[in-house]
């Protein structure tokens, strides 16, 4: 099974052909709130004149998403799961210049069918 550093497999599917889910361990979640720093904001403001990708923000949100996922994986590890299935992402603007990235899913123990 494809695993990453923390040993928790992630997926946004809930049924897996060729695998059996032996235990359900409930909902796990991870979130992070990040603010864009002023320098990035100014650069993005300039980039906004010509349009196109705002690389600073893309990077920021990617970092935050990784952080949210790894917090969720840490929770899953703590309850003794080896996978988080049915993962969903959500992004919310909480204040000017700050965004919350949330990842949640169901922690399970999954293994290949014998």
């Amino acid at each position: 099974m494809a695993t990453n550093t923390s040993g928790i497999t992630l997926s946004n599917i809930e049924h897996f052909p060729g695998y059996v889910i032996t235990r359900h361990l409930g909902l796990v979640q991870g979130s992070t709130v990040r603010a864009k720093h002023v320098g990035r904001d100014i650069m993005a403001g300039l980039k906004n004149i010509v349009g196109g990708e705002l690389k600073g923000y893309t990077e920021l949100l990617n970092e935050s998403r990784r952080e949210a996922l790894s917090r969720m994986q840490a929770q899953a590890l703590a309850v003794g799961a080896n996978a988080v299935i049915n993962v969903r992402f959500s992004t919310a603007n909480i204040a000017a210049g700050a965004a919350e990235i949330l990842a949640y899913g169901t922690a399970v123990v999954i293994q290949r069918e014998a």
Binding site: M1, A2, N4, T9, L10, S11, N12, I13, F16, P17, G18, Y19, A44, K47, N48, I49, V50, G51, G52, E53, L54, Y57, T58, L61, N62, R65, L69, V87, F89, R112, E113
Partner: peptide
């Protein structure tokens, strides 16, 4: 029974003036 993993791609786009 094959290996699987979550994959994700994202981009932030701005409009021009």
């Amino acid at each position: 029974g094959q290996d699987f993993a979550l994959v994700c791609g994202s981009v932030v786009m701005g409009g021009d003036y």
